[in-house]
Design a protein around this nucleic acid. Structure first.
Lengths: 228, 228
DNA sequence: CGCGTAGTTGACTGTCTTCAAAGAGTGTGG
DNA sequence: CCACACTCTTTGAAGACAGTCAACTACGCG
């Protein structure tokens, strides 16, 4: 079952409200030259595949997208979940180095990569926005690196729940928009370990699970689990 | 013992020869406005610490630098090794999110971050260079993510050796410029596991260890170990 | 020469994975 | 509306890979 969730990370909501650009078709607020084309993908549909020519870049309007890499024996690592407001699909080089797929039914804006690059070459403001975006993504990737390299299963799951909560508005109660497999492949664990860890966290009173994918976090306790 | 190694990644050597900028004091080739100040750090000396104000950015001229994060119980994750030609120290936000330390005696150029940002704001070309650099670093971080999330100890060590070889010139024979602890903290393993894995790879004929930190790779066999 | 640090090796432990099976939730068609 | 099929999730038992603890070796330096 695909819970009908609209993923609206607080920061993005705030930013788009402030700048009044969320329904707009531009790449960045106040950047009228880069107009995207609306496009939709169904649940589990591929946006682009690893090795394909990177002709377009994307901005999520609604829904969610994951990007991942796979080894030839099937091991998979998800490198990021992209929520409304997020840009993805940028590459240094001609080909995509990940596969991107829609988690749920998803609306995006598509921009020709060449057009974005030309705009960046002409406008320092655009280029700086793109630089900032890339730097921000780098920070997220490095946080994931620490998580994968040095954290236990319990810490990974707890950190993940807090991250999702924050991006979904920070209410502490929400439905996980992804399957156990997606969570496991993001956290470098197996689905069984994720499941067991969630059960353990519930038993420890760090969260409640009313049913389905819904969770209600006890944030203070979860924070104590991660406690960096 | 710190083997006196000059780390000159092939790609950077090529680039700097082509552009004739390696001994220069500029941030990018053909960008005379951004002049750095030469500076030196001794072995194991800290360049900047996590949480410090990010006032400067750095370009490695000679030697090597590592950036890492630590958890409060001492677990450490190295997120990158920076070799001659590499830039590091860029942040989105006021504070450094890593600690940077010199692996060996290291020469760098220091640039005021504000100056770089102003230059980027004025020049689309500079901003695009910075964007490209950040995108490239993002790619490296995501490769590390896959390594940490889904690869076995043997695969990690083999991939690491091939990466270092490539960045050191690709001859297949070199001395590792970092300690076992650094390797372990980069690969998300313990020093014992790194040591055992190296011994196993040697036993399997995938490499030789003439002594000290020197290794001589059998690249074909190592490639078969990684075999993505 | 002896000390301190770095690296190797061994024995044992523990966390996470693997394999297996049962349970829960969702959608379909009679 | 319920039976059925399907997928997703949970739980259990056993095993494996990497970690921990500890001893020993090699190397570099005063």
């Amino acid at each position: 079952m695909a819970p009908e969730i609209t993923l609206l990370p607080a920061s993005h909501v705030a930013a788009s409200v402030a700048l009044g650009c969320n329904d707009s078709t531009v790449l960045f607020a106040g950047c009228p030259e880069l107009i995207g084309t609306p496009f939709s993908y169904g649940r589990e549909e591929e946006v682009y595949g690893e090795g394909e020519d990177a002709e377009y870049v994307y901005k999520v309007i609604e829904g969610a997208v994951r990007t991942h890499k796979v080894l030839n024996d099937g091991r998979r690592q998800i490198t990021g979940f992209h929520l409304p407001g997020d840009l993805f699909g940028f590459e240094q080089g001609e080909a995509h180095r990940h596969t991107a797929e829609a988690l749920t039914d998803t609306k995006v804006l598509i921009f020709r990569r060449r057009g974005v690059e030309r705009a960046a070459a002409r406008s320092a403001e655009v280029a700086c926005q793109l630089w900032g975006m890339a730097t921000n993504n780098l920070r997220l990737a490095q946080d994931l690196t620490l998580l994968l390299g040095r954290r236990t299963a319990t810490e990974r799951v707890a950190a993940f729940l807090m991250e999702v909560d924050e991006r979904l508005g920070g209410s502490g109660t929400f439905a996980l928009p992804m399957t156990r497999r997606d969570i496991a492949d993001y956290l470098g664990l197996t689905i069984e370990t994720v499941s067991r860890t969630l059960s353990q966290l519930e038993e420890d009173g760090a969260l409640q699970r009313p049913g389905g994918r819904r969770v209600s976090l006890r944030r203070a306790r979860l924070r104590r689990v991660v406690e960096d």
